[in-house]
Simulated scan of single mutants.
Amino acid sequence: MMIRSTIGAVTFGCLVLAGGLAQAQEMQFFRIGTGGAGGTYFPIGGIIANAISNPPGSRACDDGGNCGVPGLVAMAQSTNASAHNVNAIQNGQMEAGLSGAATLHFAYNGKGKFEGNAKPDLRVIANLYPEDLHLVLSEGASLNSLADLAGKRVGIAQAGSGTQIAVELMLADYNVTRDNMDEAELNNAQSAERIADGQLDAYFYAAGTPVAALIQLDNTKGMELHNWSPEEVKMANSTVPYYIPSVIPAGTYPGVTYDVNTVAVSGMLVTNANIDEELVYQITKAMWSNTARKLLDNGHPKGKAITLETALEGVEGIGVPLHPGAERFYREAGLLK
C-alpha cells in the first residue's frame, strides 16, 4: 500500500503538470515474475519492466521519453523462477513471468511434476535467450561422468523449479536419484555459498551467462564447471528435448579457462491468455522499440541476445501458443506469415 500511495502521489503531480492528455491516462500495474537476485531472470525481468513502462505523466516516446505502454507501470518481482511463475500466471497472481521452455511445455501440457495440474492459460510473448545449464564444482574438482554424483551432496535447484525437473530426469539416466544422493533444494546464491563453505560437492543451475553469483564464487573461492561429454549432451537432449547442445566459452568466468560443453534451454516471456489482447500487443511492440534496445544492450550481458529476429525461435516446438496480442505484432512485423 505504501508503494502504491507513493506512486499515486508522484503521478498526481505529473498529471497536473502534463495537462488534459495525461489526466486521461489510467495507471495500470503489470507484475512480471522473475527469479532469485543472484541469477539472470531478475535483472532481465527488471530491464523488460523498465522498457515496457510509461507511467501517467511521463514523456511520450515521440517527445524523447521511454517508448513503453502509456499508463503502464510494470514491476519485476523476485520469485522461485520458472515453476513458481507459471503457477502464478495461471492463477492470476501475476500478469507475466519468465520461464524455461521445458517447464513451460510440461506445465501447459500437464506432464512430469505437472501431471494432473496442467496450466492451459499460459501463452508466449517472446523467446528471450538461451539458458546454459551450469554444473558447478569446487575448485580443482572434476567428474568422470554424471554417474559420479551418486553418494554426493548435490544442489538440484529450488523445489519445483524448471531446472530441478529437468535435472532429475537427466540424472535418472545415470541411476542417480534422491535415494542415492544427498540432494539440496536451494537457489543459486545459497548453492554457491554451500559450495564455497564445503557443504556441497556440486550443484546445477540454468541461467543466461554470466551469472552474478557465479562470478562472485569464481572471484573468491574459485570453481570448476563440468564439461559434458558428447554422450552426456546427446542423452540429456534425448531425455529433455528442450535442452539443446550449447557451449559456455572459456573466460566467461575468468577462472574457468576452458570451453564448457553443456546443454541449454530457452528462456521465455510468458503471460495469461486472458490478458487483454491490445495490452499484450502494445507490450510486445514496446519490447522491440529503440529505447528497449538500448536498455537491453546496456543493462545486462545477456540482453544483447534478446532480439526481435530470435523472438520466435523454438516457440513452435514447445507447443504453447503465442498470445493473440503478441501474434498480431509479429504478423505485422513480418515474422509470421
Rank of each mutant, 00 (worst) to 15 (best):
Y330I: 06
A236L: 08
A157N: 14
G8V: 13
Y253W: 04
A60E: 11
A273K: 14
A76Q: 02
A147S: 08
G140P: 01
V256W: 02
N272S: 15
V270R: 09
A264T: 09
G97H: 03
D121W: 08
F29T: 14
L128S: 06
N50Y: 04
N80D: 15
P43G: 05
Y242Q: 12
V315G: 01
A196Y: 07
P254Q: 00
G35K: 08
L214Q: 09
P321Y: 12
A22Y: 12
A107W: 12
S58W: 01
K113I: 15
I283E: 03
I89G: 04
H300Q: 07
A273Q: 13
V263Q: 02
E232D: 07
D132F: 10
Y242A: 10
A81C: 13
T257A: 02
C61Q: 04
M181A: 08
D197C: 01
I48N: 00
T6A: 15
M268D: 05
G140R: 00
A76S: 09
D276F: 01
I32R: 00
P55V: 12
A24K: 15
D276L: 00
P70I: 03
G208K: 06
Q282E: 07
T252Y: 03
A22W: 11
E313M: 11
Q93V: 10
D132Q: 10
K302W: 03
A202Q: 03
L21M: 14
D121L: 12
V69S: 00
V86Y: 06
N66I: 09
L295C: 00
A157F: 09
G46M: 01
P245S: 09
S229C: 04
M2V: 15
G251Y: 03
A74H: 01
S78L: 14
E309M: 13
V280K: 01
R194M: 13
A18T: 14
A326P: 02
D182E: 09
T257R: 02
V176P: 07
L17N: 15
M223C: 06
H105R: 14
L308Y: 03
T239A: 09
T209P: 07
G8W: 14
L295P: 00
G35I: 10
L17V: 15
V256S: 02
F329K: 04
V256G: 01
I156G: 05
H300V: 04
K304I: 11
A202G: 08
Y129K: 09
L122D: 06
G112H: 11
G155P: 13
